[in-house]
């Protein structure tokens, strides 16, 4: 593969791991807008252990996963008392605290960032992404997954049915934080350098979008969402200028025309996101996507009431 494509595949794999981390929290009905904070914890833990103590990538990445997971659990216990928009703001504030601490830490390089001497090939993030996908698919097929989905639907009834609502939420959030930390460790070694400016609010927003627009109902959602939003801007890089030229040529205009050029692809992406929110708020992939066409008795047709 060319350097361009290995770069794309690496970032795609890291985004898939990251998206699964956020998905686990979202699947219980909690929006985690602090993704970048957990990824930064994993990335800096791996970078520091590699740079200062010369640990090998396998150990630094494992340590980054554990650090993010443990801090995720510690933060989940108080923060999951919040509900709705306050929870979202709480996770967001957490990521800002992490960024602020790292920016002001001389040990972690401050605004200069840290170099990461040990390098991993693109196969490592891809293997990690496959493993994460399998893990999440497995978890969602267990009784734990059933509990996660019922907490998402109705936490009062889930509790009355005997589900430990708080335990399920904390476990899903902490495991998700660990996966976000794993994606950070992979990032540090794949790109050989970490700087805190890269782990910003828009990263947290993007990864949450992968999950919500991919679809939070099934474990396919994060995979499809991350793939769609990582590959679409790349595809538009060449498609957009080509399409523009074709249109103008059709009107008989030639020569140097601008804009829109390829830098406008994020405008198109933004418009696509808004269109998705309007026309398919439940995400690209839903449970019904995989339902086999079934024979239904006429009585089974959705009623007005059922559509609520």
């Amino acid at each position: 593969m060319s350097g361009y494509w290995t770069g794309i595949v690496t970032i795609l794999a890291i985004n898939v791991v990251f998206a699964y981390g956020i998905y686990l929290a979202v699947a219980t009905g909690q929006l985690n807008l602090g993704g970048a904070g957990f990824q930064a914890l994993g990335a800096y833990a791996a970078a520091w252990l590699c740079f200062e103590l010369d640990w090998s990538p396998a150990w630094t990445i494992a340590a980054g996963t554990v650090v993010a997971g443990v801090i995720g659990m510690g933060i989940a216990i108080p923060i999951l008392r919040l509900k709705g928009v306050y929870l979202v703001l709480g996770t967001f504030a957490f990521a800002e605290v992490v960024a602020g601490l790292i920016l002001n830490s001389e040990t972690l390089g401050g605004a200069m960032g840290l170099p990461v001497p040990a390098y991993i090939e693109w196969q490592v993030p891809v293997a990690a992404a496959v493993a994460c996908a399998l893990l999440v698919f497995y978890l969602m097929a267990t009784r734990f997954g059933l509990a996660v989905r019922s907490v998402h639907d109705d936490d009062v009834v889930a509790d009355l049915m005997g589900v430990n609502v708080r335990g399920v939420r904390v476990a899903a959030f902490a495991l998700g934080a660990a996966l976000a930390g794993l994606s950070g460790g992979l990032y540090a070694h794949a790109f050989s350098y970490v700087e805190i400016q890269g782990f910003n609010a828009s990263l947290s927003i993007y990864v949450l979008l992968y999950v919500l627009l991919g679809g939070a109902q099934t474990a396919w959602g994060p995979l499809v969402g991350a793939a769609f939003f990582t590959l679409l801007p790349e595809a538009m890089r060449s498609f957009l200028p080509a399409a523009k030229e074709a249109i103008w040529t059709a009107f008989g205009v030639t020569g140097d025309i601008s804009p829109p050029d390829e830098s406008w692809r994020f405008v198109v992406l933004g418009a696509a996101v808004i269109a998705m929110m309007v026309f398919r708020p439940e995400g690209l992939v839903t449970r019904d996507t995989f339902a086999f066409p079934r024979r239904r008795s006429p009585a089974a047709a959705p009623t007005r009431e059922a559509a609520e």
Binding site: Y138, L139, A141, T142, R143, F144, G145, L146, A147, S150, A158, M161, G162, V163, N164
Partner: peptide
């Protein structure tokens, strides 16, 4: 309906074994 069985199957082993896989 399986959710109704939850209180009888809430140990760690039961929680982490697959329902259909």
């Amino acid at each position: 309906v399986m959710l109704g069985q939850q209180h009888r199957r809430s140990g760690l082993g039961a929680m982490l074994s697959p329902l259909t896989l």
